[in-house]
Amino acid sequence: MARQIGDVIVDLQNISLRFGGVKALTDISFNVREHEIRSIIGPNGAGKSSMLNVINGVYHPQEGQIFFKGALRKKMEPHEAAEQGIARTFQNIALFKGMTVLDNIMTGRNLKMKCNFLQHALYWGAAQKEEIAHRIKVEEVIEFLEIQDIRKTPVGRLPYGLQKRVELARALAAEPHILLLDEPMAGMNVEEKQDMCRFILDVNDHYGTTIVLIEHDMGVVMDISDRVVVLDYGKKIGDGEPDEVKNNPEVIKAYLGTSH
């Protein structure tokens, strides 16, 4: 492979997150290296999505520290995370239902657009030029993900699999350094999963985007991940390369239960 795994880009240390009395995450530490595909797995309710929410600032953990590109990030807000180059997709699709596919993907470009609302109101000169320049970028993403034919369709009308793809497109349009994918293949059939795998690997390969992936399909996870972290009941029970994790007795216990 052409890509070279680099230094640690996200470093989470002793993260604990509580909602009232409920402990969602307890003392979790792990890191993500540049250009790698890092998977988070675990049974339902293990705290995987909460983990992503901590990384991009949707939740703020009560304890622990997050280092991003070597700098300590305290109480980072989601939009600040976006400015740092973190993009993500959601477990339950979070597209903007009232907008077309094209507009949804265009929102991914918002941080790169510099015109202010007065220029937008006039839609003249700079504003129009900017809009078209970004449209060209968006069209590249559309082409890459093979969704040209649904460009002008309101996303609410699309089937589930395509919505997932549009959400990925929106995240990619931001040209992120780190892409957080929350179950991108849930509910898909085999063909759709294969397509999605291909897109993920391509993104990682072409753009060198670091990917943090939550996925339940173990075949996929073990196939495409560089390293895997395993959570159970909000605690980390395994971390390492796919083969290591596969043979970790704790992990086997969490997934299969213990026989008495």
């Binding site: 939009h79 995370a81 907008m99 015109c115 937008h120 006039l122 839609y123």
Partner: peptide
């Protein structure tokens, strides 16, 4: 002017906040 606003990035920001505010923040609005 209003039409121009709503078809530009400003309008998309508004609609994004309307449709799903958490996602809008995550995308950088």
């Amino acid at each position: 002017l209003a039409k121009n606003l709503v078809r530009s990035s400003t309008g998309r920001a508004w609609m994004a906040v309307r449709d799903m505010d958490v996602a809008a923040q995550v995308i950088g609005f």
